[in-house]
Amino acid sequence: MTTKTAELSMAIFLLLASIALMFKSAELNIGWIPGRGPGAGMWPFYLSLGMALSCLAIMYRWYKRVTPESRNEDPFLSPETFPIVAITTGALIGLLVGIHIIGIYFSLALFIIFYVGYVGRHSWPLTLALAIGTPVFIFCLFEWALTTTLPKGLEMFEPIYYPIYNLIY
């Protein structure tokens, strides 16, 4: 996809989203309620209307070739850029899915092994030091110092932490 096409596609997508938001806001009262003041939907309704209008302006400027993006024929994501951005985004999605299943600490360790060891091709000692050190640091900071529990994944993984809880609480 060229930058030019991306510019138009994004504007169309944002326009559709703005219109959808207008309808969503209109589920509430968007007018004046006598004796009470503006309805709850009024402010978001006019904001999304403004968003839709600015999208139309962006599309008009695209049509007139005013913005540099609307004249740019280069690929939107270059062949050098795409792999690194896609791998990173994919790894982050994997990290978040992992948090739901095996909990944040084990998911983080796997994420770091993948990113430092596989993507970065760093040595095993460094990879393992980071993969173990980072979750341990985060655990100490949040569960211990801030007493904020972070997600532990499915219930069956919870007992792993019992001995540590006994130690710190």
Binding site: I99, L108, F111, Y115, V116, H122, T134, I138, F142
Partner: peptide, 14 residues
Amino acid sequence: FTVLAPIIFTLCVV
């Protein structure tokens, strides 16, 4: 950057 990025991402997620 491949060492730095995962550390920053970790801080972002928590």
